[in-house]
């Protein structure tokens, strides 16, 4: 709803005090960098996909955003580097790689608002950690909204909003929400903690998708 792909049935959404409907649609959308749940890539080169919204990006900046998205390690694995074609004729990317390319694509335009819609679900825990900490520096002073099911992803958010059945049921920082031990957030946290502990041997976390919670930090 924020980039007005949909309009609210009732109520208003405003950015910086201005109703989003009073912005020009292209200006509004250009203000967002969106990393959607399903990372759709075009069957073009990886470079072209990343530069989709910013064709004239400075090479140094390109290096930087691909580093932030954790793609710098993968590039050597692609047969033609950044010019490898995505899809059947080029290489079939893993879910995590696709998600990280989609992240770099959103970062390329250096948007005032970055939206991550469960965007790192297929990325392993360690890489996710690296990406999130790099994002913290990169996004300093700019708004970032993260939608996730993983407590670990949300830990550093300034504000976490817990949704259930279309309603906001909790609001606060990670610590504040944990303090309410009967709250939904804390229960999920314990559950994920237990899961994590029960398989201490394995480092990565599987993708998760559950109806219910959704959290955002701004």
């Amino acid at each position: 709803m924020l980039p007005r792909m949909l309009d609210p049935g009732e109520g208003h959404i405003s950015i910086g005090g201005t109703d989003i409907c009073s912005f020009r649609l292209d200006r509004l959308r250009a203000a967002f960098g969106m990393v959607p749940q399903e990372s759709f890539l075009f069957s073009d080169s990886i470079r072209a996909n990343i530069l989709f919204a910013a064709p004239n990006l400075d090479p140094a900046r390109f290096e930087e955003i691909t580093r932030i998205a954790g793609l710098d390690r993968d590039v050597s694995l692609f047969p033609h580097g950044w010019d490898t074609i995505v899809g059947e004729r080029g290489i079939t990317l893993s879910g995590g790689q696709k998600q990280r390319i989609a992240l770099a694509r959103a970062l390329a335009a250096n948007p005032p608002i970055l939206l991550l819609d469960d965007a790192l679900s297929a990325v392993d825990g360690e890489t996710e950690e690296r990406i999130l900490s790099a994002l913290l520096t990169e996004r300093k002073g700019k708004t970032t909204l993260v939608v996730s099911h993983r407590i670990s992803t949300l830990r550093n958010a300034d504000q976490i909003i817990v949704l259930d059945g279309g309603r906001i049921i909790q609001k606060g920082t990670h610590e504040e929400l944990l303090a309410d031990s009967e709250g939904f957030y804390a229960k999920i946290a314990v559950l994920q903690q237990l899961e994590q502990e029960s398989c201490a041997s394995c480092g990565d976390a599987s993708s998760s998708e559950d109806p219910g919670e959704e959290a955002a930090g701004g």
């Binding site: 980039p3 792909m5 292209d26 959308r29 967002f32 759709f40 075009f42 069957s43 989709f52 919204a53």
Partner: peptide, 19 residues
């Protein structure tokens, strides 16, 4: 054909990035 099918199925991306 492939350009059309691809960019119609990826229309949300095109719109989101104002392309």
């Amino acid at each position: 054909n492939s350009f059309l099918s691809e960019h119609i199925s990826g229309i949300d991306i095109v719109k989101l990035f104002v392309q």
